[in-house]
Design a protein around this nucleic acid. Structure first.
Lengths: 206, 206
DNA sequence: AGGAAAAGCGAGTGAATGCTCGCATTATAG
DNA sequence: CTATAATGCGAGCATTCACTCGCTTTTCCT
């Protein structure tokens, strides 16, 4: 029964220290992406920084893209964790409180790892694109569900259009605030931006 | 007087057909960026598509980045042309009409060459970044100037904050509308989005 | 016409990089 | 203890690609 020659098709199966290897590789990739940019991120360098060999790298990741995709997913999961729990939190809150919370959370999420976020947002070469779409759709669905549950507080308007506009707006303001205005980010400024953005969105919805 | 050996330090001096060569190179770069993505955009391929030799390419552009930067600038200039004239147009218009025009123009601008816009927005590796910042600042300044001239129609609010929020919002909605919703872009939908976005921004300002 | 400069050419070079493959080391099972 | 699998290694291969250089062709000027 020599059915399975020692063929390890590469990539799956993690049992012990190999978990650490995989983690080290993903972490190293993130670090290099931030510190050197996507262009300088080579597999040899990733392996070097992770303290493993290129060979080991290719045992768990079939390509450089797979590695970058892993970093993107990890980052997106962090963000989605925050966003999901926020949306649970606000389920029964009135519109103005809820929107304020969403705006705050959006900024917090962007502040998790701004440098990484910037690189991922600006230099994605191809991979992970589908996953990002999926996350966007999930956010849209969750926000829409909240709106739907609070119809009475909202004027007559197509909920998909309203969701699209609100999500785009909040995301953009959070993004630009954290990434383009890093300097002028006093707490007072942030509070002003949250106040004003909330005002705009709430005013729009009702 | 052998002062000037046939040294042509590369890059400047365009007099006749060379202009056509330069144009062909920029155009070819844009085409390849759109059709193959940044990763596959090599100088040899650019020269091939442009119908010139690599040598000629390097007579006018000192590096691949210079070529990409030229494409970015050309595209940005197209957009800024539209935006600038819109801002002149609206100078004396009332707030609601003016905002509506701005929203419409933003979408129009994104529709000039959506594919190229996407590649430039998503895959910029480094170059052109400074120029993009400059354009953003110019837009901010122009919009702020309009707001300043129409203070009476606007509630008491820091004009920089208001401008930041409005510009971010309009840009994001236009961007997402054209790039992520390309499918569902009936004229009716666009009109709805323009209406609602205008309503939100105007409601916010006064 | 004739000479010089501008424009154009494209095979070739050198460096970077993604990835493989045969082997060494470590862990697990019987 | 020994066999077997899992994990790890890293020199090197193959390829790609930005860019150079010596040369030819075209244009301009007198």
């Amino acid at each position: 029964m020599a059915r399975k020659p020692p063929t390890k098709p590469r990539k799956n199966a993690l049992q012990e220290r190999s978990r650490a290897t995989v983690d080290a590789l993903v972490e190293a990739t993130a670090r290099i992406l931030v510190r050197e940019g996507f262009e300088k991120t080579s597999t040899n360098r990733i392996a070097e920084i992770a303290g493993v060999s290129v060979g080991s790298l290719y045992q768990y990741f079939p390509s450089k893209e797979a590695l970058v995709a892993a970093v993107i997913n990890r980052h997106n999961e962090e963000i989605m964790g925050i966003v999901r729990s926020a949306l649970i939190e606000i389920t029964d809150m009135p519109l103005d409180k809820a929107v304020r919370r969403l705006v705050t959370v959006a900024i917090e999420a962007h502040r998790i790892n701004p440098e990484l976020h910037r690189v991922l947002a600006e230099q994605i070469p191809r991979a992970g694109k589908l996953d990002v779409e999926a996350f966007n759709r999930e956010i849209h669905t969750l926000v829409r569900a909240y709106f739907d549950g609070h119809r009475k507080e909202i004027r007559k308007i197509d909920l998909d259009v309203a969701t699209f506009i609100c999500v785009s707006t909040i995301e953009a303001i959070a993004h630009n605030t954290v990434l383009n205005q890093a300097a002028m980010l006093s707490d007072k400024m942030v509070r002003t931006l949250v106040d004003e953005t909330t005002r705009m969105v709430v005013g729009f919805l009702r």
